[in-house]
């Protein structure tokens, strides 16, 4: 009995919400919208213009390429398929985000290595200075034992007395 009621509920309840679902779909723009096209075009660069993203490029050629993306979306292509198509047709230079594989991965890896190396060098330099060379006794004569705040205060007060 309980199972029957449960089954009936699962069949009836969705039909109660169906009209509103249809209404919502009618209110929305038809797929693919300009925004759907631009979302993909923004990940691509114009294959022939100087360093211009495809979503903002104003040339006729770029308008045609955006129209092509729209057509491909209408035909059911996925984002990855469209991007792969453009790479196949025009080469890797159309990708705004360089691949993280092969030789191109160097563009991502080297800055990380540089930062790690830089940190290591700084660490070693400071540690070397700090750990092995204590400040000489005469240095304490060069700068009296005031902290900077006190020195700043003294300077301010003396300035005001001038």
């Amino acid at each position: 009995m309980n199972i029957r009621i449960l089954l009936m509920c699962t069949l009836i309840i969705p039909t109660l919400f169906a009209p509103s679902a249809v209404h919502a779909q009618e209110g929305e723009e038809k797929f693919p919208t300009d925004n759907d096209v631009n979302a993909i075009a923004g990940k691509l660069y114009c294959p022939v213009c100087p360093n211009t993203p495809l979503d903002v490029c104003e040339t006729k050629a770029c308008q045609d390429w955006r129209a092509q993306i729209k057509q491909q979306l209408e035909d059911g292509w996925t984002e990855d398929q469209i991007i792969d198509y453009f790479v196949l047709q025009y080469g890797e230079r159309v990708l705004a985000n360089p691949k993280r594989e092969g030789f191109t991965s160097l563009v991502w890896v080297l800055p990380v290595i540089a930062v790690v190396l830089g940190m290591t060098v700084i660490w070693r330099v400071i540690k070397g200075w700090w750990g092995f060379k204590k400040p000489s006794g005469s240095e304490s004569n060069i700068e009296p034992g005031f902290d900077e705040e006190s020195l700043a205060r003294i300077e301010r007060e003396l300035d005001e007395m001038r």
């Binding site: 080469g91 990708l95 705004a96 985000n97 191109t104």
Partner: peptide, 8 residues
């Protein structure tokens, strides 16, 4: 191979 290094 020509590539583009863009904003990302």
């Amino acid at each position: 191979t020509k590539i583009t290094v863009g904003p990302p």
